[in-house]
Design a protein around this nucleic acid. Structure first.
Length: 570
RNA sequence: CGGGGCGUGGCGCAGUCCGGUAGCGCACCUGCUUUGGGAGCAGGGGGUCGCCAGUUCGAAUCUGGCCGCCCCGACCA
């Protein structure tokens, strides 16, 4: 590509609304432009990066037996009704009516449609199958943000595995796991595979591939001493037992005027430290109230509660609902003596004595509460969100917690979709059995942003060779006859060698060209100008270190080809 | 959906409090000079000031409503 003919609209200033580094640099570098909130046009350079990522994914998924499809974006509502997700997914699913008034959905993901195709599988002899496609997904996100990291329209590679049994499914799951590690490594992303919540997808095992980044929206707990890593939506930890000392024979009510918070009670004369308090929360799940009990200093991890309840709707109760239920306002709530309300407690409260909690009477608390004696707990469920510095559940290590971008997610779906949609095959005994499925996704745009988020410096992007929009830029420092001729020759030779090369033949000043080349992050630069050419020299620079070396012009090509080849395979 | 911020040439912004001919930098076009790290001079083009209504002799500026964008939270494969 000749830069003079290319559409690469670089900007000097950061776009006004951008916060995330990847967002700023992808816009400034001329890779993309925003259409509306959560919707971006990819420009040629951005499309090239995405295409290279796509090729890597295709190679690796084909490598584990994948067959590429292309399924529609527009779906009849009927199939979403059959899977049950028309109701489950909620507002995030784009819905529309056609001219006859018939409901449709815009594809949010493609379990239903692939499963429908899979109803043509009839015999165990046809399994296993691994199917995938790259297709636009549409999601009515409540809050798109951070450029390409969270959008309403994006292309995803989603694959679906079909097996006779869970053993076969596990093989496909492991194949994907390994392929994903290779895919992300090839695009320059260091990922952590973490245990995750399956959320609305349904299914059992679920693993997310996370890239550590402050721009990420997820929190990951990881142990540096062993291989434990989990999304905080699932993570557990080891914490020291609290010594309660001798308790009272019965709970004792005491006045606590204006004490409404854990902290206030901890600082109140006659109160109790947070770890000696019981935090009582009221939530409404599917319309029914729930009491949630945690140690005073422990935050509720709401996804754990959602997962345990398999709830479609879960929300904190409103103040008037709480007063109706318990007779007191938030800040004075407790579970002592409460009956008829489903009560779920975190195991860190098990066997505790001498606890302090609300008395269900405004401005009063109870001390000397013995959990097993005084509170009726229906279920003990881990609901606590882990914190950095707590013990690893699997070894003696100490957990670290960091923000991360979810770049891939793999699920074991079981037979949820095959049963709902009738995807059965006959086994060796002629008996119909639902196909055991898995689903596996990678968002392309998010992957582009994640790479940009990780590979940049104060001058701009620093693409890994494997995904760079161009691998080499030839910068002509002056457009005199000799320089142009030398540049054209080198441009053609590099192209002949299969190198993706950009020739900067614009009539701009050298500073502009250098800055643009650095901003858009081309891994290697060859600089040609009359000064060097007079001595038969081409100047070479790698974007990663910015150090320039003079090469004999006749050796430059071979040198660059070698580095590009090494970079592609890195 | 709650809280906060912001909408003024392609991009980044000032002007709004206190109403009176719409500005600056960059980018763009023409000419001359310049040419190894975002050139200089001269000339030039381009804006219904987010939209609608109102107040006023007069509105980018004041009032009301609406729309859009960003951030935090809620939410979220």
């Amino acid at each position: 590509m000749r830069w003079s003919q290319a559409f690469i609209p670089t900007l000097r200033d950061d776009p006004a609304g951008a916060e995330a580094i990847s967002h700023k640099l992808l816009v400034r570098g001329g890779f993309m432009r925003q259409l509306m909130s959560g919707s971006y046009s990819l420009l040629p350079a951005g499309f090239k990066v995405r295409s290279k990522i796509r090729t890597i994914i295709e190679q690796e998924i084909n490598g584990i037996g994948g067959q590429e499809f292309l399924l529609p974006v527009l779906h009849p509502a009927e199939i979403w009704h059959r899977s049950g997700r028309w109701e489950v997914v909620g507002d995030e699913l784009f819905r529309l009516k056609d001219r006859r008034g018939v409901d449709h959905a815009l594809g949010f993901t493609h379990e239903e449609i692939f499963t429908l195709v899979a109803t043509e599988l009839k015999s165990y002899k046809e399994l296993p199958q691994l199917w995938y496609h790259f297709q636009t997904k549409l999601r009515d996100e409540p809050r798109p943000k951070s450029g390409l990291l969270r959008v309403r329209e994006f292309v995803m590679k989603d694959s679906y595995s079909f097996d006779m049994d869970v053993e076969g499914q596990a093989v496909q799951f492991d194949n994907h796991h390994a392929a994903y590690v290779r895919i992300f490594k090839r695009m320059g992303l260091e990922t952590v595979a973490v245990e995750a919540s399956s959320g609305a997808m349904g299914g059992s095992d679920s693993i997310e591939f996370m890239v550590k980044s402050t721009a990420g929206e997820d929190l990951v707990a990881r142990c540096p001493s062993c291989d434990y890593a989990a999304n905080v939506e699932r993570a557990t930890s080891r914490i020291p037992k609290v010594d309660d000392g001798p308790g009272l024979d019965a709970p004792e009510k005491f006045a606590t005027p204006d004490v409404r918070t854990i902290d206030a009670l901890a600082n109140f004369e006659g109160g109790a430290a947070a770890e000696h308090q019981i935090k009582t929360l009221v939530h409404i799940a599917e319309g029914e109230p729930l009491l949630i009990l945690l140690r005073g200093d422990h935050p509720l991890q709401e996804q754990k509660l959602t997962d345990h309840l398999a709830a479609q709707t879960l929300r904190p109760a409103k103040e008037d609902e709480i007063v109706d239920l318990l007779g007191a306002h938030p800040g004075s709530l407790g579970a002592v003596g409460v009956s008829g309300v489903r009560t779920i407690a975190d195991p860190e409260l098990m066997g505790r004595t001498s606890m302090t909690t609300g008395a269900n009477e405004d401005d009063y608390h109870l001390r000397g509460v013995n959990v097993s004696r005084d509170i009726t707990v229906d279920e003990w469920v881990d609901l606590r969100e882990v914190r950095a510095g707590e013990g690893c559940p699997n070894c003696d290590g100490t957990l670290e917690v960091f923000k991360a971008i979810e770049v891939g997610h793999i699920f074991k779906l079981g037979t949820r979709y095959s049963e709902a949609l009738g995807a059965n095959v006959l086994d060796e005994n002629g008996k119909a059995r639902p196909i055991v499925m898995g689903s596996y996704g990678i968002g392309l745009g998010r992957a582009v942003a994640a790479v940009a988020e990780v590979h940049n410096d104060d001058k701009g992007l620093v693409w890994p060779v494997s995904v760079a929009p161009w691998e080499v830029v030839i910068t002509l420092v002056k457009l005199d006859e000799e320089t142009v001729a030398a540049g054209e020759k080198m441009y053609e030779e590099l192209q002949a060698d299969g190198i993706d090369v950009l020739l900067d033949d614009r009539s701009e000043r050298p500073g502009v060209k250098f800055n643009d080349a650095e901003l858009i992050g081309i891994p290697f630069r060859i600089t040609l100008g009359p000064r060097g050419l007079a001595e038969g020299i081409a100047e070479f620079q790698a974007r990663t270190d910015g150090e320039s070396t003079d090469l004999d012009i006749h050796e430059a090509i071979a040198h660059v080809v070698e580095l590009v080849t090494a970079g592609r395979n890195a």
